[in-house]
Amino acid sequence: MTYQKPSFRHPAAQVNELGYTRRDYEGSLSTLCAGCGHDSISAAIIEAVFTLPLEPHRIAKMSGIGCSSKTPAYFLGRSHGFNSVHGRMPSVTTGASLANRDLVYIGVSGDGDTASIGFGQFGHAVRRNLNMTYIVENNGCYGLTKGQDSATADVGSKNKKGAANPYEPIDLVSMAIQLGATFVGRSFSGDRQQLVPLIKAALTHRGFAFLDVVSPCVTFNNHEGSTKSYAFTRERIEATPLDFVPMREEIRTSYAAGATQEVCMHDGSVIRLHKQNDEYDIEDAQSALQAIAHHNKQGRVLTGLLYIDRDAHEMHEVLGTVRRPLNSLTEKELCPGTKVLDSINAGLR
C-alpha cells in the first residue's frame, strides 16, 4: 500500500500553461502494493498530461478489471472515469468516443484484461482506429487473483511457486502492428524518461495509440526466473530514447543529441527519436515487426516508439460523423417531426 505521495510531485505552486497545478491532475491514494510498477505509470500519466498540457476535465479514463484497471482512481481525479467489466474497456470506450469525439480517452488495461479475456475487443478497437490512448500495464501475471500466469508471460518464466510457464507469450506490440494499430510503443514502468514522452506522443496521436508498458508485479512476479521482474527488465531492455516536443513548447531534451529522426504529429508537435545503430524506419510496419522479433531472439525487449502511421483515418473520419459531439445534438437535429412522419405513413399505404 502506498500511504503517502512522494513530496517531489508537488513543487510549490508550479502551474502549467493552462493554469493548473500538478495536484489538479492527481487522484486518490493508490491501494496497490508498495513498489507496484502500475503506480509509476500513473505518475507518468500525470506528468504527461500536466506538461502537455491537457485540461483534466476533458479527459476520460477508461478501464476494465484487474490491478491495472483500478489505477484510474489514482490519477486525474477531476476527470470522469469508467471502470467497466473485464476485457470490455475497448467497447465502452468506442461508445463513449461515438458520443463525444472531443474528449481525450485514456484506457488503462492489463495483460489479462487485454491479451486474454479482452483479446477480441482489443483487436477490433485497433481495427477501427479508435481515437484513444490504450495503455497495457503488462506484468505477465494475474495480480488480483494472486499470481497466475497471463498470456504475456514468457515461455519458461517461473511463477511465484516456481512452476515454469509452458506456453509461448502473446507479444502485444507485434499483435497491435499486425492488426493495424497506427501508433505502437513499448516502455518500462521504471523508465520515466522514455515513458512520459511516449504517453505525450500517444495522447497527441489521432487514432489508436497503443502502449505496452512492462510493469513488474512486486508481489507475484518480481522473483528470479520471472522475465517481467525489475531486475530482468532493467538488464534486457533495448531502449530507443525519445523526446516529445508539444506544439509551441521549447525543445528540452535530456538525451544527448545523436542521430535523430523527427516525426511531426498532426497538431505540429514533434517526436524526436534518438537513433541507435540497429534502428529502422518506424513508419514501415514490416521493419518494425522484424526489429521487434530480432531483439526478442536476442533475449532483449525493444522499447520506444516502434511504429507510427500518421495518415490513417480514425473512427469518426471513417464513419463520417458530424464534427459536433453526437451527445450535444438536440431534437432539432435528431427528430424529423410529424410532417415527415405523415409522408412516411403515406408511403406505407
Binding site: 467497447s91 465502452v92 461515438l98 463525444n100 474528449l103
Partner: peptide, 27 residues
C-alpha cells in the same frame, strides 16, 4: 456529415458495451 453513428460490432458483448459507453457519455 452524419448526425448519427452506426457500428457493426465484433459480437453482442461489444455491441452493448458501445451502447453503454455512449449512454454514459450522454448520447
Amino acid at each position: 456529415e452524419k448526425n448519427y453513428a452506426i457500428v457493426q460490432a465484433e459480437d453482442e458483448l461489444s455491441a452493448i458495451g458501445m451502447v453503454i459507453g455512449a449512454g454514459w457519455n450522454g448520447a
